[in-house]
Design a protein around this nucleic acid. Structure first.
Lengths: 329, 329
DNA sequence: CTGAAAGCGCTTACAG
DNA sequence: CTGAAAGCGCTTACAG
């Protein structure tokens, strides 16, 4: 910029005015400065600019895994809102590791992002208190913040599961299994609660061997399913606590002698093409991202003092066939 | 930092030393400075730091769509390499719009990212010449750069398609259709070339009505398929030029009276669960991201002067069933 | 072992 | 309409 000023024979401030299209510069001067800019290939350094203006026009997005298809539409929705607000997006994956989440978040804060959108991996976010006090707007999404009071946008996991299980009950099932993710994960616990509530609402007992929480790798899911489907009184229907469980369940059930009804939490591509097409409880993944980002920018535009909000988006039952299979006699 | 120095009764430089864990500070001084840091809740501003050190430790990733499952593993691989090199990741979607691609790229450059990984939407990247000359390492991935000589990491699209079509020919097909994406997209054109080559290698003629290039929305694909499958001599097999075409083709073919063989470019989740399971030519999506990022960081570590490289990763045929259906008599 | 001065590339607040 | 000075929060290069 100094070089441009020298070449155009003007002061630094005038170059700054031209670059920022501020009014009050003679067309003649503008032309001279512009010529110098072009000749020197000058490109403003936004990092320096932002150091002075104290807004970085950037937000950090931390999610569980950039490669997880569930978070892809969420990221895209966040990006769209960020772009509409003139902000750039830092992204990173926590890989479900609280330490990595914290590292990423603090790295973003050290860059002085204006705001943060976090799918939490950990359950203690007190490390964020100094940042939030320093003015970093923060919205948690998909899972609640731990041990701090903060904005969050969640899916109604319990309600969605309740609807899904009630759907199975309405189709005549009494012995319904539930396979969920690790109980420490909030969404997993909420879904289990929904299962319990739906059964209780229908006056149905739950046997302890009907539900199981833990890692959702195919091996464990297969083992659990094998036990659910064996014995004198096997379950006649299964509620799969997430995407990965559903996929393994579909594989196993397609080779099972008796038809077993299935409802899965989370929609997935081609669910309607399988045989039978898979009934799911679908989350509004772009809606989560959009709502979180909109809330974030509202905070940034002066709504910083209002009390933290907690939004809960509904999940939607999509009946496709697998959830409408009647119990085997 | 000034406040910390004042409170600890030391100079700015000493605070800087403590923060950066530089040697040559008395343990006693370190303790005093650390106490001041904690008391004041000081957090170093990396943006300011980076202004001085002239490295931002960040790279920009521009892809077609953050929400596209194909790019999710690519992004994740880039992120992993970036993290291993201590860099943060800016990401953005071009939405297949060259202007948006350029906007994003230049916005990243204005933040002075150290490097850029770009899935190009446009076919003229001369706008990047000043940036590259200014030292921004740039690697194109998935599609080649337009009108500039630059590093790129691509899939062998023509070779992969050749293998896929040859596979259909080996199973007895002679009338093979091809539905591809817009001909202006490099990967689409390359795949068409592979189709032509495989047919020519086998001495088979291609009728102009057997292949069609254009938008891959379901409506168009359905219409093209309808015409390919009608008439006195319909095709007995189809090569689908990408994921979206494959999905629509699966839907249409499942309702078609005669069995039609299908091979699709790009793998997708649950392809093995469909009926019949779908034979695909799979790209190494994480490999693309990893190779591109590794090349980028090699450039950043001093390899800036070497001639641009062009890597081509193989695509792999995965036979699952749909590609092994023999021609209807 | 420690610190004052200059500078990274911009903008702010002000004066002319 | 224009520009010199100070400053954003750090590091570099140097001196003591």
């Amino acid at each position: 910029m100094k070089d441009v000023a020298a070449r155009a024979g003007v002061g630094l401030k005038t170059v700054s005015r031209v670059v920022n299209e501020e009014p009050g510069v003679t067309p003649d001067t503008v032309a001279r400065v512009q010529a110098a800019i072009d000749a020197l290939g000058f490109r403003r350094n936004d990092s320096a600019r932002l150091l002075r203006t104290r807004r970085t026009a950037s937000v950090g997005l931390v999610l569980e895994d950039l490669a997880d298809p569930f978070y892809a539409p969420l990221s895209r929705a966040v990006e769209d809102v960020a772009r509409a607000n003139g902000a750039l997006l830092f992204t990173g994956s926590s890989a479900e590791d609280p330490r990595r989440e914290q590292e990423l978040v603090l790295a973003f804060c050290a860059r002085r992002v204006d705001g943060l959108i976090v799918v939490p991996a950990g359950d203690d976010h007190r490390y964020l208190i100094p940042e939030i006090e320093a003015g970093v707007a923060t919205v948690f999404v998909d899972r609640p913040a731990g041990r701090i009071d903060a904005d969050m946008v969640l899916t109604d996991n319990a309600g969605g599961t309740r609807d899904g299980v009630a759907h199975l009950i309405a189709h005549g099932h009494r012995r319904i299994g539930f396979i969920g993710d690790q109980p420490g994960i909030h969404t997993a616990a909420e879904r289990l609660r929904g299962y319990r509530e739906a059964m209780a609402d229908a006056g149905l007992p739950i046997r302890p061997e009907w539900y199981s929480m833990g890692p959702t790798n195919p091996e464990r899911v297969r083992a659990v399913l094998a036990s659910l489907l064996s014995g004198p009184e096997p379950v006649t229907a299964l509620f799969a606590g997430n995407n990965r469980v559903t996929v393994t369940a579909v594989r196993v059930l397609s080779h099972h002698p008796r038809p077993v009804a299935l409802v899965g939490f989370d929609d997935f591509e081609l669910a309607d093409l399988l045989d039978p097409p898979v009934t799911v409880v679908a989350q509004d993944s772009p809606g989560l991202g959009r709502s979180a980002a909109q809330l974030l920018f509202r905070r940034l535009e002066g709504g910083a003092d209002a009390a933290p909000e907690r939004l809960e988006l509904p999940a939607r039952l999509i009946a496709r066939g697998s959830g409408e299979i009647p119990p085997a006699p």
